[in-house]
């Protein structure tokens, strides 16, 4: 590594330290300034969407699996945790682990089933899966309480403070993002990109296509499941409406507008959109019309999203640098 590289490396660490300190300070700033704690809630939910949209970006943008079942896996995590807690009386920390595992298991099963499908068939199959799941949760109200909402134990007991939830969600987001970056910077990331570009060519070059495709589903479902369990134990009530197709559309739109090929851009896109929709709430129906138009125009004219190109420019990176990363990765 050159001396120039070392300096840049140090700057990055300094920036990271500042970022983490600032993130840690958010609740303090809100409290000390007497700002409404409501905004802490908005940011927690924004982190929740950031986790979903970045993990969907990993599945769709990196691995090329355009699944519509991501919110379904999220709901599996949340409902599994809530139901186990309700019927077996286990504490939230245990049920969260079980919920995440259930989502991962479902991800493995769906990943294995859709192996052969091309884009359009995959999209249709995952929509069908998601809708069947939602109808079941709604229909079996005796068990899930359906639309009346399943009450879930709060993660941090009876406290009315949102601060512990904020730090928990922040920690989950940072750790999951870091893990996903480690994953895509490794050989696995290279293989996933190779499969996305040309599955047959990748297979011919000895990439175990089946294994890596399923791996992508399992990892992203685990993360979606974790997001779902956290959401369940934070909001403490779950309804099947959290997994309707428009909600899935929202997550997809967040990732697309951020930039589907960069996990970080997808996460930032989610945070901006979630906060933006909240700020623009009084515009009512027209807010979603503008949002829809933005989504379509981004897709057509800015395939890399609106956030990712800014990153590239600020960092002096271009598409070439992206390619270089992909080439460098296996060498390490």
């Amino acid at each position: 590594m050159s001396s120039m590289g070392r300096i840049r490396f140090r700057i990055e660490w300094a920036v990271a330290a500042v970022a983490v300190v600032l993130a840690l300070l958010v609740p303090y700033v809100i409290q000390s300034r007497g700002l409404p704690t409501y905004w802490l809630h908005v940011i927690i939910i924004a982190y929740f969407y950031a986790l979903l949209s970045s993990s969907w970006a990993l599945l769709a943008g990196v691995a090329g699996q355009f699944s519509f079942a991501h919110m379904g896996f999220m709901a599996i995590g949340g409902y599994a945790s809530g139901l186990v807690g309700k019927y077996l009386g286990l504490p939230p920390l245990v049920t969260i682990v079980l919920g995440v595992l259930a989502a991962g298991l479902a991800g493995w099963a769906i990943g294995a089933l859709v192996l052969r499908f091309k884009a359009a068939y995959l999209a249709l199959f995952t929509i069908a899966f998601s809708e069947i799941l939602r109808t079941l949760i709604r229909g079996e109200a005796d068990i899930t309480r359906g639309d009346q909402g399943l009450h879930v134990a709060p993660l941090f007991g009876e406290t009315i403070s949102r601060v512990p939830y904020y730090y928990a969600m922040l920690a989950i987001l940072v750790v999951c993002l870091a893990l996903m970056y480690v994953l895509i910077s490794s050989r696995v990331g290279l293989f996933l990109r190779a499969i996305r570009e040309d599955e047959e060519a990748a297979a011919a070059r000895g990439v175990d296509v089946v294994r890596y495709k399923i791996l992508a589903f399992v990892v992203t479902s685990l993360i979606a499941g974790l997001a779902g369990t956290f959401f369940a134990h934070y909001i403490t009530i779950l309804t099947p409406n959290i997994m309707v197709i428009p909600q899935m559309g929202l997550v997809i739109a967040m990732a697309i507008i951020g930039g589907v090929e960069s996990l970080m851009a997808a996460a930032i896109g989610a945070i901006i959109i979630q906060v933006g929709l909240e700020v623009l709430r009084e515009f009512g129906a027209w807010r979603l019309v503008i949002f829809g138009a933005l989504l379509v125009l981004t897709l057509r004219f800015a395939r890399n999203g609106l956030i990712a190109p800014i990153f590239n420019r600020v960092l002096g990176l271009g598409p070439k640098a992206e390619a270089r990363v992909a080439e460098e990765a296996p060498a390490q």
Partner: peptide, 25 residues
């Protein structure tokens, strides 16, 4: 590898700034 880290760090910073901006004067 380092490019990815840079993405991660700058992204994190931007996220934090945004969230701060959303709630702080």
């Amino acid at each position: 590898m380092s490019t990815h880290k840079r993405f991660l760090l700058i992204g994190l910073l931007a996220a934090v700034l945004l969230t701060l901006a959303a709630c702080a004067q």
